[in-house]
Amino acid sequence: MRSDKDTEHKEESIRILARVAGEAEPGGAALDHETRDASDPIEKLGIRIGRLLAMAITIAVIAWVVVYFMRNF
């Protein structure tokens, strides 16, 4: 028979595994669209700035690669 201590350890293990599974999912709680406040103007501004920076960096890297290959070949 299991003791109370074994039951407590099992329950704690189940809680930990459930939390880790939720955090390990792609697009987990940190990136979940339902958790952010859509009416928050600072949140919207941050998203726009992040997207613009990502696009600018991507274009800069592509341009650098093109220039690099054009000079070396």
Results as ranks from 00 to 15, higher is better:
Ala38Cys: 01
Glu25Ile: 12
Ala29Ser: 13
Arg36Pro: 02
Ala56Met: 11
Arg51Gln: 04
Thr35Pro: 03
Ala38Thr: 01
Gly50Phe: 14
Arg71Val: 00
Leu17Thr: 07
Asp6Ser: 12
Phe73Gly: 01
Trp64Arg: 05
Pro41His: 10
Gly46Asp: 12
Ala24Ile: 14
Leu31Phe: 05
Lys5Ala: 07
Leu45Gln: 13
Ile47Gln: 12
Leu53Trp: 07
Glu25His: 14
Gly50Trp: 13
Arg2Ile: 09
Ile59Val: 10
Arg19Tyr: 02
Met1Gln: 09
Glu34Val: 03
Ala54Gln: 08
Ala21Asp: 09
Ser39Arg: 07
Ser13Met: 12
Asp40Leu: 06
Ala21Asn: 12
Glu25Trp: 15
Glu12Thr: 11
Ile49Tyr: 07
Leu17Ala: 07
Ser13Asp: 07
Asp4Ala: 15
Arg71Gly: 01
Arg51Gly: 02
Trp64Ala: 06
Asp37His: 10
Thr58Ile: 11
Glu8Tyr: 09
Glu43Asn: 13
His33Trp: 02
Ala24Tyr: 09
Thr35Cys: 04
Met70Thr: 01
Phe73Asn: 01
Ile42Ser: 05
Ile57Gln: 05
Val66Arg: 06
Asp40Trp: 03
Arg19Pro: 00
Ala29Gly: 13
Arg2Ser: 09
Gly50Asn: 14
Ala54Phe: 06
Val20Thr: 03
Leu31Lys: 11
Thr7Asp: 08
Ile62Leu: 03
Pro26Lys: 11
Trp64His: 02
Arg15Lys: 13
Arg71Met: 02
Arg36Tyr: 00
His9Gly: 09
Ala18Thr: 08
Val66Ile: 04
Val65Leu: 04
Val65Asn: 00
Asp37Arg: 14
Pro26Leu: 13
Leu52Ser: 13
Ile14Pro: 03
Arg15Leu: 10
Val66Leu: 04
Glu25Thr: 15
Val65Tyr: 02
Ala56Cys: 10
Met1Lys: 13
Val66Thr: 01
Glu8Leu: 15
Leu45Asn: 13
Ser13Asn: 11
Ala60Asp: 02
Gly27Met: 08
Lys5Trp: 11
Met1Ala: 10
Arg36His: 03
Asp6Thr: 12
Thr35Asp: 00
Glu8Ile: 15
Arg15Asn: 05
Ile62Met: 06
Asp6His: 15
Ile16Tyr: 12
Glu12Ala: 14
Val67Asp: 00
Val67Leu: 06
Ala29Leu: 15
Arg15Cys: 07
Val66Met: 02
Ile14Trp: 08
Ser3Cys: 09
Ser13Trp: 08
Leu52Val: 12
Pro26Asp: 06
Glu34Asp: 01
Asp4Gly: 14
Gly50Thr: 12
Glu12Arg: 14
Glu11Ala: 15
Asp37Asn: 15
Ile49His: 08
Gly28Cys: 14
Ile42Glu: 05
Val65Ala: 01
Phe69Trp: 10
Ser39Glu: 00
Thr7Ala: 15
Ile62Pro: 04
Gly46Lys: 13
Arg48Tyr: 07
Asp32Ile: 10
Val65His: 00
Val61Ala: 02
Ala38Ile: 05
Arg71Ala: 00
Phe69Asn: 05
Pro26Thr: 11
Trp64Cys: 01
Arg48Cys: 10
Ala63Gly: 06
Ala54Ser: 07
Ile57Ser: 04
Thr7Ser: 13
Arg19Cys: 03
Leu52Lys: 12
Ala30Leu: 14
Glu23Cys: 08
Arg36Ala: 00
Gly22Gln: 12
Ser39Asn: 01
Leu45Trp: 14
Glu8Gly: 09
Glu34Gln: 04
Lys44Cys: 04
Glu43Gly: 12
Pro26Gln: 08
Ile62Asn: 07
Leu31Val: 05
Gly27Cys: 06
Ile59Thr: 05
